[in-house]
């Protein structure tokens, strides 16, 4: 449905030349939620802005429903843009307009009638759950509410595609989840395709079914969510997936010793990279090796048949037994680090 074909973009500033996008290609099917993840400065915003030609690529094509957007006249392009909604990290609501009037803006641009506008806007405010805020100004809304208004505005022209430029990056984790759920809901109920960019793996895991990783202007990996997540060899994916550190609870960290001592047991951080199931790992330690342990914390996710995440194990067998467990980890390529002894 949407094909990004070999686009490149170079920024020139005085004497500096910077290639922000380098031969990027990506196909997006109708109904997909595609996530592009990358570090700051990787070219994510430049890429997503290229899709509706807010940024004109130097080379390559954006083909939307068979049309090459770059070949359109400015009025034809404006028409196409109306069918592509966009939301932003900083919401970009007009401070001079109420919630109602912000959502009405796209309809006003189309010279819609008053009755039509009022009907549509109220409908949209219901979709995003803000009927009671219609007459408020954006400054009195929370970040999550602002983003809901922005989503309603983006939906006003009945788009088939929604572009999200770091839509949740300015929000707290709980609000982020609710916005992501709203997006997922919109995708399922209205059948709107979503292309989002983010620097957070959690966002990708929460709603995307296709993923691409962008690094230094190039798409280095793309595929389904599971394919990409299990590509553990890729250094970039690794950095994104397992960047979270596990916190050692204070009750343990206060007595944690760096060196082994009699009566102290090793505290091991174990990384699950999809090569062993969480339950399997625990049963190996407990049933096969018969090592008692305490599971201090576990942050594990299941994607298909694989587990990903980190856990903190306090092994409580004899030194020889504990050593066996570590050896088992190493033999099976399960990353582990001894955090100390307690």
């Amino acid at each position: 449905m949407i094909a990004i074909k070999n686009i490149s973009k170079t920024f020139r500033q005085e004497k500096k030349v910077f290639k922000a996008l380098d031969d990027v290609s990506l196909e997006i099917e109708q109904g997909d939620i595609v996530g592009i993840i990358g570090f700051s400065g990787a070219g994510k915003s430049t890429l997503i802005r290229s899709v509706n030609l807010l940024e004109k690529p130097d080379e390559g094509q954006i083909i939307v429903n068979g049309k090459d957007l770059a070949k359109l006249s400015s009025s034809e392009l404006a028409k196409e843009r109306k069918k592509i909604g966009m939301i932003f990290q900083h919401f970009n609501l007009l401070s001079s307009r109420t919630v109602f009037d912000n959502v009405a803006l796209p309809l006003e641009l189309d010279n819609a009638g008053k009755a039509e506008i009022s009907k549509k806007v109220n409908e949209l405010l219901k979709v995003v759950g803000l009927e009671d805020k219609a007459n408020e100004y954006p400054k009195s809304l929370s970040g999550g509410q602002k983003q809901r208004v922005a989503i309603a505005r983006a939906l006003a022209n009945d788009p088939y595609l929604l572009l999200c430029d770091e839509a949740t990056s300015a929000l707290d984790p709980v609000t982020t989840q609710s916005i992501l759920q709203l997006l997922k809901d919109i995708n399922q109920r209205l059948g709107i395709t979503i292309l989002l960019i983010t620097h957070e793996m959690d966002v990708i895991k929460a709603i995307c079914n296709h993923v691409a990783v962008i690094d230094k202007g190039r798409l280095v990996v793309k595929g389904s969510l599971e394919e990409v997540l299990s590509d553990r060899e890729h250094p970039i994916i690794k950095q994104f997936s397992i960047s979270k550190t596990v916190n050692i609870p204070q009750s343990i960290s206060s007595t944690l010793k760096r060196e082994p001592e009699a009566g102290l047991f090793p505290l091991v951080e174990v990384e699950l990279n999809g090569n062993i199931l969480f339950e399997k790992l625990l049963s190996v330690i407990y049933s096969d090796y018969k090592i008692p342990y305490k599971l201090i914390t576990a942050d594990v996710e299941y994607l298909g048949k694989a587990s990903f995440g980190k856990l903190l194990l306090h092994l409580q067998g004899s030194p020889v037994e504990n050593e066996k467990a570590i050896r088992y980890f190493n033999k099976n390529n399960i990353q582990n680090t001894i955090k100390g002894y307690a």
Binding site: N52, L54, S74, S75, L77, A78, K79, E80, R81, K82, I84, M86, F88, H90, N92, L94, S95, S96, R97, L105, P106, E108, L109, R153, N157, L163
Partner: peptide
């Protein structure tokens, strides 16, 4: 006026006159 607002209006398919009337001057 924050540049993001102009950009948003462009993404909504507004031309220069609409951007001026609906976004720049009111903001």
């Amino acid at each position: 006026v924050p540049a993001g607002l102009v950009e948003t209006a462009r993404a909504l398919g507004a031309g220069p006159i609409q951007v001026t009337r609906k976004v720049l001057l009111p903001e």
